[in-house]
């Protein structure tokens, strides 16, 4: 390395921070604003200053005393976890089949998945709803979860590439040792694609968490409601209670943040384990 190059790493490092800090600020700013607003009283909610002064916990007190946070988060957690788990099982099994067991099916099945994604969801929700009620699944976890497995196509497309990246030699070796396909899948493929499974799983989980129309149609009873429907209860004909809405939104985002923090460790885990942290 030339002595004149010694400054360059420092400049590069500063630039690195600048870009990432700028991007982070831009992306996280609305959330920061929501957080600050959740500490504003009703007289300050509309004030243009982002700082909550005087700060108050009234919004949180009001939300926690009259809004069924626990129930809503619980219902939504069951729905989202159910959909994420279901889609991952479907996608991992399919990915394994398309890469290892029946590779000749791959182009056709992946095309079928892509077409399925191109179907506008708003156009098929009525038939889906009628079918679900016909099955007697309205007001049930089954009705909330099973129809949302139709979007497994996305998980399949994302995961199949990762299954394909597993070295063929490892899979062959397992087969030579007499492992059944399911054993190969469990012991060889799954550990290799774990970061991708977690990444796709958390994205499906959150997408389902933010779903509005389907739970509205399927779970009309108050004790079946999900977070997004609960949040709509802060906006009535009589106006919106912005401070409380933001407090409720912060409270219901926390479970996702926790899930993400746990998952994200594991997503980048593979190189941390390799002891390569600087």
């Amino acid at each position: 390395m030339h002595p004149t190059d010694r400054l360059r790493p420092a400049v590069a490092h500063a630039l690195w921070h600048l870009v990432l800090a700028g991007a982070s600020l831009a992306m996280a700013f609305p959330m920061l604003w929501s957080l600050l607003t959740s500490f504003k009283g009703p007289q300050d909610v509309f004030s243009p200053s982002p700082l909550p002064w005087p700060a108050t916990l009234d919004n949180y007190a009001a939300v926690l005393s009259s809004w069924p946070v626990g129930m809503l988060v619980g219902n939504t957690f069951i729905m989202s976890a159910g959909v994420a788990a279901g889609q991952l099982v479907i996608a991992v099994l399919a990915g394994f089949a398309l890469v290892v067991l029946a590779p000749r099916m791959r182009p056709a099945v992946l095309s079928a998945c892509t077409i399925a994604l191109a179907v506008p969801p708003q156009a098929i929700i009525i038939p889906q709803f009628l079918l679900t009620t016909r099955l007697g699944w309205q007001n049930s976890e089954l009705g909330l979860i099973v129809p949302q497995l139709g979007t497994s196509a996305l998980a399949v497309l994302l995961l199949v590439e990762h299954v394909a990246a597993v070295p063929a030699a490892q899979i062959e070796a397992a087969a030579l040792q007499g492992a059944r396909p399911i054993e190969t899948l469990w012991h060889v493929v799954l550990p290799a694609i774990r970061p991708a499974i977690l990444a796709v799983g958390i994205l499906v989980f959150i997408t389902t968490w933010n779903e509005y129309l389907w739970p509205l149609l399927i779970a009309p009873r108050s004790h079946d409601a999900t977070v997004q429907i609960g949040l709509a209860q802060f906006q009535g004909e009589g106006g919106t209670d912005y401070g409380a809405l933001m407090a409720a939104s912060v409270l219901t985002s926390l479970p996702i943040v926790v899930v993400y923090i746990i998952a994200s460790r594991r997503i980048i885990d593979s190189f941390i384990k390799a002891g390569l942290r600087p």
């Binding site: 009259s66 209860q233 802060f234 009589g238």
Partner: peptide, 11 residues
């Protein structure tokens, strides 16, 4: 649409 609303309408 007033039932369940947080605030005066709901109560």
């Amino acid at each position: 649409y007033t039932y369940g609303v947080q605030g005066a309408a709901g109560t």
